[in-house]
Simulated assay, not measured.
Amino acid sequence: MPESRLSTMLSTVIRQQRQLRELNQRQLAELAGVSQATVARVERGDRSPSLPALERLLAAMQVQLTVDVEPLDAHLDARLAEHASRPLAEVIDDLGLDRLLDRLGDLPNLLTGATAAVLQGAPVPAEAVEIALRWRDSARFTSWLEAGYAQRWNARWAEWGGVHIEPEEPGEHRWLTKHGEIRAQMCAELPEGIEVRHGGRGYRVVPLVQVELTDPRAADLLRRHRQRQQAG
Protein backbone atom coordinates (compact mmCIF):
# COMPACT_ATOMS: atom_id res chain seq x y z
CA MET A 1 0.00 0.00 0.00
CA PRO A 2 1.53 3.35 -0.98
CA GLU A 3 2.38 5.58 1.94
CA SER A 4 0.16 8.41 0.64
CA ARG A 5 -2.84 6.09 0.63
CA LEU A 6 -2.05 4.81 4.11
CA SER A 7 -1.64 8.37 5.38
CA THR A 8 -5.03 9.29 3.94
CA MET A 9 -6.72 6.32 5.57
CA LEU A 10 -5.11 6.97 8.95
CA SER A 11 -5.91 10.68 8.84
CA THR A 12 -9.57 9.89 8.12
CA VAL A 13 -9.77 7.42 11.02
CA ILE A 14 -8.13 9.78 13.55
CA ARG A 15 -10.24 12.77 12.51
CA GLN A 16 -13.49 10.77 12.49
CA GLN A 17 -12.88 9.23 15.92
CA ARG A 18 -11.91 12.63 17.39
CA GLN A 19 -15.03 14.31 16.01
CA LEU A 20 -17.27 11.50 17.26
CA ARG A 21 -16.01 12.24 20.76
CA GLU A 22 -16.43 16.01 20.28
CA LEU A 23 -12.75 16.67 20.97
CA ASN A 24 -10.69 19.41 19.36
CA GLN A 25 -7.12 18.77 18.24
CA ARG A 26 -5.61 20.36 21.34
CA GLN A 27 -7.71 18.21 23.68
CA LEU A 28 -6.78 15.02 21.83
CA ALA A 29 -3.11 15.99 21.87
CA GLU A 30 -3.21 16.49 25.65
CA LEU A 31 -4.94 13.15 26.22
CA ALA A 32 -2.43 11.33 24.00
CA GLY A 33 0.67 13.13 25.24
CA VAL A 34 1.64 14.46 21.80
CA SER A 35 1.81 17.94 20.36
CA GLN A 36 -1.17 19.59 18.70
CA ALA A 37 1.01 20.01 15.60
CA THR A 38 1.38 16.22 15.44
CA VAL A 39 -2.39 15.74 15.51
CA ALA A 40 -2.84 18.40 12.83
CA ARG A 41 -0.21 16.84 10.55
CA VAL A 42 -1.71 13.37 10.94
CA GLU A 43 -5.23 14.60 10.18
CA ARG A 44 -4.02 16.50 7.11
CA GLY A 45 -2.37 13.34 5.86
CA ASP A 46 0.99 15.11 5.55
CA ARG A 47 2.75 12.09 6.99
CA SER A 48 2.01 8.72 8.55
CA PRO A 49 2.39 8.79 12.36
CA SER A 50 4.87 6.50 14.06
CA LEU A 51 3.28 3.37 15.50
CA PRO A 52 3.79 4.52 19.13
CA ALA A 53 2.19 7.91 18.35
CA LEU A 54 -0.69 6.23 16.52
CA GLU A 55 -1.29 3.87 19.44
CA ARG A 56 -1.31 6.80 21.89
CA LEU A 57 -3.80 8.75 19.76
CA LEU A 58 -6.16 5.79 19.44
CA ALA A 59 -5.80 4.71 23.07
CA ALA A 60 -6.67 8.25 24.16
CA MET A 61 -10.01 7.72 22.38
CA GLN A 62 -10.41 4.20 23.83
CA VAL A 63 -10.08 2.42 20.50
CA GLN A 64 -7.34 0.33 18.93
CA LEU A 65 -6.00 -0.26 15.45
CA THR A 66 -6.67 -3.54 13.65
CA VAL A 67 -4.65 -4.59 10.61
CA ASP A 68 -6.19 -6.29 7.61
CA VAL A 69 -5.26 -7.02 4.02
CA GLU A 70 -7.25 -6.70 0.82
CA PRO A 71 -6.98 -8.29 -2.63
CA LEU A 72 -5.01 -6.70 -5.44
CA ASP A 73 -6.94 -4.67 -8.03
CA ALA A 74 -7.51 -7.61 -10.40
CA HIS A 75 -9.17 -9.55 -7.61
CA LEU A 76 -11.13 -6.48 -6.55
CA ASP A 77 -12.47 -6.21 -10.10
CA ALA A 78 -13.64 -9.81 -9.96
CA ARG A 79 -15.38 -9.22 -6.63
CA LEU A 80 -17.03 -6.04 -7.88
CA ALA A 81 -18.28 -7.85 -10.99
CA GLU A 82 -19.62 -10.68 -8.82
CA HIS A 83 -21.51 -8.33 -6.54
CA ALA A 84 -22.82 -6.24 -9.44
CA SER A 85 -24.56 -9.36 -10.78
CA ARG A 86 -26.34 -10.16 -7.49
CA PRO A 87 -29.99 -9.05 -7.16
CA LEU A 88 -30.44 -6.54 -4.35
CA ALA A 89 -33.25 -8.63 -2.84
CA GLU A 90 -30.80 -11.51 -2.47
CA VAL A 91 -28.23 -9.32 -0.71
CA ILE A 92 -30.88 -7.96 1.68
CA ASP A 93 -32.06 -11.48 2.46
CA ASP A 94 -28.51 -12.80 3.04
CA LEU A 95 -27.80 -9.97 5.47
CA GLY A 96 -31.07 -10.55 7.31
CA LEU A 97 -31.49 -6.79 7.02
CA ASP A 98 -35.27 -6.55 7.25
CA ARG A 99 -35.43 -8.94 10.19
CA LEU A 100 -32.74 -7.11 12.10
CA LEU A 101 -34.26 -3.67 11.46
CA ASP A 102 -37.64 -4.93 12.62
CA ARG A 103 -36.03 -6.23 15.81
CA LEU A 104 -34.37 -2.86 16.47
CA GLY A 105 -37.83 -1.34 16.61
CA ASP A 106 -37.85 2.38 17.48
CA LEU A 107 -34.17 2.53 18.44
CA PRO A 108 -32.89 5.51 16.38
CA ASN A 109 -30.42 4.36 13.75
CA LEU A 110 -29.19 4.96 10.25
CA LEU A 111 -27.74 2.42 7.83
CA THR A 112 -24.16 3.22 6.94
CA GLY A 113 -20.99 1.69 5.46
CA ALA A 114 -21.27 -1.04 2.84
CA THR A 115 -24.93 -1.67 3.76
CA ALA A 116 -25.86 1.89 2.82
CA ALA A 117 -23.70 1.72 -0.31
CA VAL A 118 -25.37 -1.49 -1.53
CA LEU A 119 -28.85 -0.04 -1.04
CA GLN A 120 -27.80 2.90 -3.22
CA GLY A 121 -26.71 0.65 -6.08
CA ALA A 122 -22.98 0.25 -5.37
CA PRO A 123 -21.67 -3.30 -6.06
CA VAL A 124 -19.60 -3.58 -2.89
CA PRO A 125 -19.49 -6.61 -0.57
CA ALA A 126 -21.69 -6.18 2.50
CA GLU A 127 -20.72 -8.73 5.12
CA ALA A 128 -22.86 -7.47 8.01
CA VAL A 129 -25.56 -4.92 8.75
CA GLU A 130 -23.80 -1.63 9.46
CA ILE A 131 -25.63 1.10 11.36
CA ALA A 132 -24.95 4.45 12.98
CA LEU A 133 -26.14 4.84 16.58
CA ARG A 134 -26.06 7.70 19.06
CA TRP A 135 -23.94 7.37 22.18
CA ARG A 136 -26.88 8.44 24.34
CA ASP A 137 -28.80 5.38 23.11
CA SER A 138 -25.98 3.08 24.18
CA ALA A 139 -27.85 1.66 27.18
CA ARG A 140 -30.87 0.80 25.04
CA PHE A 141 -28.64 -0.80 22.45
CA THR A 142 -26.87 -2.83 25.14
CA SER A 143 -30.24 -4.12 26.37
CA TRP A 144 -31.10 -5.06 22.80
CA LEU A 145 -27.80 -6.90 22.45
CA GLU A 146 -28.38 -8.79 25.68
CA ALA A 147 -31.85 -9.85 24.52
CA GLY A 148 -30.31 -11.03 21.26
CA TYR A 149 -27.69 -13.18 23.06
CA ALA A 150 -24.96 -11.07 21.47
CA GLN A 151 -21.27 -11.90 21.46
CA ARG A 152 -18.78 -9.16 20.72
CA TRP A 153 -15.85 -9.61 18.36
CA ASN A 154 -12.65 -10.25 20.26
CA ALA A 155 -9.89 -8.89 18.00
CA ARG A 156 -7.14 -10.14 20.28
CA TRP A 157 -8.15 -13.78 19.85
CA ALA A 158 -9.94 -13.37 16.50
CA GLU A 159 -13.11 -14.95 17.80
CA TRP A 160 -16.54 -14.05 19.15
CA GLY A 161 -16.98 -13.61 22.89
CA GLY A 162 -14.78 -13.17 25.91
CA VAL A 163 -15.18 -9.37 26.04
CA HIS A 164 -17.83 -7.01 27.42
CA ILE A 165 -20.62 -6.28 24.95
CA GLU A 166 -21.26 -2.65 26.00
CA PRO A 167 -20.23 -0.16 23.28
CA GLU A 168 -18.40 1.96 25.89
CA GLU A 169 -15.97 -0.89 26.55
CA PRO A 170 -12.77 -1.00 24.43
CA GLY A 171 -12.93 -3.04 21.26
CA GLU A 172 -14.49 -3.13 17.83
CA HIS A 173 -18.16 -2.21 17.62
CA ARG A 174 -19.06 -5.53 16.08
CA TRP A 175 -21.46 -8.12 17.47
CA LEU A 176 -22.91 -11.47 16.47
CA THR A 177 -26.56 -11.80 17.56
CA LYS A 178 -29.31 -14.33 17.00
CA HIS A 179 -30.61 -11.90 14.36
CA GLY A 180 -27.30 -11.76 12.48
CA GLU A 181 -24.06 -9.79 12.60
CA ILE A 182 -24.27 -6.07 13.29
CA ARG A 183 -21.56 -3.41 13.19
CA ALA A 184 -22.16 -0.02 14.76
CA GLN A 185 -20.71 3.42 14.23
CA MET A 186 -21.26 5.29 17.49
CA CYS A 187 -21.69 9.04 17.17
CA ALA A 188 -22.92 12.05 19.13
CA GLU A 189 -25.73 12.68 16.64
CA LEU A 190 -26.95 10.70 13.67
CA PRO A 191 -25.74 12.14 10.36
CA GLU A 192 -28.20 13.47 7.81
CA GLY A 193 -29.85 10.57 6.04
CA ILE A 194 -31.87 9.91 2.93
CA GLU A 195 -34.50 7.29 2.21
CA VAL A 196 -34.13 4.65 -0.47
CA ARG A 197 -36.92 2.24 -1.32
CA HIS A 198 -36.82 -1.37 -2.38
CA GLY A 199 -39.51 -3.99 -2.48
CA GLY A 200 -42.09 -1.65 -1.01
CA ARG A 201 -39.92 -0.85 2.01
CA GLY A 202 -38.05 2.33 2.87
CA TYR A 203 -34.53 2.33 4.30
CA ARG A 204 -32.89 5.31 6.00
CA VAL A 205 -29.27 5.44 4.85
CA VAL A 206 -26.20 7.66 4.95
CA PRO A 207 -25.74 9.22 1.48
CA LEU A 208 -23.11 7.58 -0.67
CA VAL A 209 -20.82 10.63 -0.60
CA GLN A 210 -20.80 10.50 3.22
CA VAL A 211 -20.01 6.78 3.17
CA GLU A 212 -16.92 7.58 1.14
CA LEU A 213 -15.79 10.19 3.66
CA THR A 214 -16.19 7.98 6.72
CA ASP A 215 -15.51 4.41 5.53
CA PRO A 216 -12.04 4.02 3.94
CA ARG A 217 -12.64 0.43 2.85
CA ALA A 218 -15.94 1.19 1.12
CA ALA A 219 -14.40 4.35 -0.36
CA ASP A 220 -11.61 2.35 -2.02
CA LEU A 221 -14.12 -0.06 -3.56
CA LEU A 222 -16.37 2.76 -4.75
CA ARG A 223 -13.44 4.56 -6.38
CA ARG A 224 -12.43 1.33 -8.09
CA HIS A 225 -16.02 0.84 -9.27
CA ARG A 226 -16.09 4.31 -10.82
CA GLN A 227 -12.74 3.75 -12.50
CA ARG A 228 -14.07 0.56 -14.07
CA GLN A 229 -17.18 2.38 -15.26
CA GLN A 230 -15.11 5.15 -16.84
CA ALA A 231 -12.76 2.64 -18.48
CA GLY A 232 -15.76 0.77 -19.84
Rank of each mutant, 00 (worst) to 15 (best):
M1T: 11
S4L: 12
L6F: 08
M9K: 11
S11H: 08
T12S: 14
V13S: 06
Q16N: 13
R21C: 01
R21H: 08
Q25T: 08
A29I: 04
V34A: 08
Q36A: 13
A37W: 15
A37Y: 12
A40C: 14
R41W: 14
E43R: 06
R47V: 15
P49F: 08
P49V: 06
L51W: 12
A53P: 05
A59Y: 05
Q62F: 07
Q64Y: 10
L65I: 13
D68W: 04
V69H: 10
E70V: 10
E70A: 12
P71N: 05
A74W: 11
H75K: 14
L76W: 15
D77F: 10
D77P: 05
D77H: 12
L80Y: 05
L88T: 03
A89R: 06
D93W: 08
D93P: 05
D94W: 13
L95K: 05
L97F: 12
D98S: 12
L104T: 09
T115W: 02
A116D: 04
V118F: 06
Q120L: 01
A122Y: 02
P123G: 09
P125L: 07
A132H: 03
L133H: 00
R134A: 07
R134I: 02
R134K: 04
A139H: 10
F141M: 04
F141V: 02
A147T: 06
A150N: 00
W153G: 00
A155P: 12
A155M: 06
G161I: 01
H164N: 12
E166Q: 07
P167Q: 02
E169Y: 09
P170S: 03
G171R: 07
H173D: 14
R174F: 11
W175G: 01
W175R: 01
T177W: 01
A188I: 06
E189H: 10
E189S: 13
R197A: 10
H198M: 02
G199F: 09
G200N: 09
R201G: 07
Y203Q: 00
V205H: 01
V206M: 14
P207V: 06
E212R: 15
A218N: 09
A218L: 06
D220M: 15
D220T: 15
L222Q: 11
R223G: 08
R228C: 09
Q229I: 13
Q230F: 13
A231W: 12
